[in-house]
Design a binder for these strands. Structure first.
Ligand SMILES: [Zn+2]
Ligand SMILES: [Zn+2]
Ligand SMILES: [Zn+2]
Ligand SMILES: [Zn+2]
Lengths: 171, 171
DNA sequence: GACAGAATGTTATAACATAACAGTCTGTCT
DNA sequence: AGACAGACTGTTATGTTATAACATTCTGTC
């Protein structure tokens, strides 16, 4: 009954999210220390806000959250922090949503395939070497040299399928 | 020496682009007639503008082009036409660029994997069933039901690699 | 404590997109 | 023809996302 990690990259609703966030922040700090990057207070706070849910966070929502703490920063504050976090590979941008999610494993290179649930808005990041390989192959078949890939798959996550799609079809 | 279609989905610089555009518009008209869709003057004109190059077209650039013909339409005019063309599957939106390209084969269902050259800005659309299959598999492995995919691959097209990358590495 | 470079603050504006409502066009029915 | 419905377009205003440019502050080093 360990439902917290059954065949899904989606976070279980009952998981210890406080620990989840702490771990992400600790990882980020270690990662930055190891790479000579400065995870300043603002940057750390922005990452924390992004980590608050497993849903994508939008730039101006992050901005508003930052504002709650008395200060009322302007957009560049957030966008600079986002740029830093993107460059440090600590977050991903979801182009199809203009939103940002924390990276689940910032310590190794990966290609960021994102599963986006249209129903609950949660995002799961998978790092499927087979997908990357097939994309590379498909591209080289056309003489194309891949620099980066954006793979965003929209659909329904297992939890939402179970909750509402039970009358549609099994499997 | 039929260099116009050698192993690449990218348009050759010497191809007959006038014919290219005419064919696209004729196809679009046939497609709309067949599906009971109304390809009005504005919609047709927007498609024509998008077809003008094999580079992605941005909404406000299209708007400006429309304005050259005396009229000076407002943004909704363009966005409505784009919405129609997207729904009719005559164009694709490139999320990572906020831009639009004509679909190369509007007559069948496909998954729109786009190769975007960072150097010449050209975009090639490939419809690789293997890529689609692997993405579906990867997603279902996580219990995820795919509705739609956004696959945008950034890199360098064969022509740009040949032109500048000759000193880097062969193949 | 002077200096350089990084980071942040601040103001303004660019770039992308849609809401809401009014008017026009197109075909259909009588 | 005239009335009507629905699709399309025009127009105004605004919402949303992102960056340019320049001033200031912070951080570590000499
Ligand atoms: Zn969590
Ligand atoms: Zn869901
Ligand atoms: Zn052409
Ligand atoms: Zn190129």
């Amino acid at each position: 009954m360990d439902s917290s990690r059954t065949a899904s990259a989606f976070a279980a609703p009952d998981h210890d999210h406080t620990a989840c966030v702490s771990r992400a922040l600790a990882d980020a700090e270690a990662h930055c220390r190891a790479h000579g990057l400065r995870l300043t207070a603002t940057r750390r706070r922005v990452l924390e806000i992004i980590c608050q849910g497993h849903e994508p966070a939008k730039a101006y929502d992050i901005l508003e959250q930052l504002g709650r703490a008395g200060r009322h920063p302007a957009p560049p504050t957030v966008y600079r922090a986002l740029e830093f976090l993107l460059d440090a590979r600590l977050i991903h941008r979801i182009d199809s949503l203009n939103a940002y999610v924390a990276c689940v494993h910032p310590n190794r290179q990966h290609s960021a395939q994102l599963l986006v649930c249209s129903s609950c808005e949660q995002v799961a990041e998978i790092d499927d070497p087979q997908i990357q390989a097939v994309l590379d192959q498909g591209a080289s078949r056309h003489g194309f040299k891949v620099d980066s890939q954006t793979v965003e798959i929209h659909g329904r996550c297992p939890r939402c399928r179970a909750a509402q799609g039970a009358d549609h079809e099994g499997a």
